[in-house]
């Protein structure tokens, strides 16, 4: 009984609302906004296209041509075709390839630079090394008695 009452109440409310909601429904189902809905579909689909599109698009033949050109340039840089290639050339390592020559030049420039930069330290190290050698020489020349005395002094912290 209670259930039937509720059902009747729902029906009544729906009837009271139906006229008001009909305006909404008729507008919703009308063809007036077809232009908008065509455009919204296009916008969404264009977004999808943009997402699917890769950053760079190459024609395969252009891509192959580019790979060929790049590999040719790289190989030309590696080998100097003007000079004849022979294993009996005594100067092989530094004359047959441009890379070797460049590397040698680079290394020599780096070495020059380092010597210039570390020259003071180098001299200082040399002096220290030779003076330590002198001390070793002096120690070697000490007699046993003198050596004991130096040892005792070191032990009693008299030297430092």
């Amino acid at each position: 009984m209670k259930k039937n009452n509720k059902f009747e109440e729902i029906e009544l409310l729906e009837q009271r609302l139906s006229q008001k909601l009909e305006v909404y429904k008729s507008y919703k189902n009308s063809q007036n906004n077809n232009t908008y809905f065509d455009s919204i579909s296009s916008i969404a689909l264009s977004k999808i296209d943009k997402k699917n599109k890769p950053f760079f698009q190459f024609n395969p033949s252009v891509a192959y041509a580019m790979v060929f050109i790049i590999s040719f340039i790289v190989s030309y840089q590696l080998f100097n075709f003007n000079e004849s290639f022979t294993f009996f050339n005594s100067n092989f390592y530094f004359s047959e390839t441009t890379i070797w020559i460049e590397e040698e030049e680079y290394l020599s420039s780096v070495l020059d630079e380092e010597i210039d930069l570390d020259y003071v330290n180098y001299i200082q190290n040399e002096i220290e090394y030779s003076s330590s050698r002198f001390i070793i020489n002096d120690i070697n020349q000490l007699s046993d008695r003198e050596l004991d005395e130096v040892y005792e002094n070191i032990k009693n912290k008299k030297i430092f």
């Binding site: 809905f37 919204i40 579909s41």
Partner: peptide, 15 residues
């Protein structure tokens, strides 16, 4: 086919 699905349902989604 996807375009047809979108045309069929875009109004319903929107409302």
């Amino acid at each position: 086919a996807f375009r047809t699905i979108v045309d069929r349902y875009s109004k319903k989604i929107y409302w």
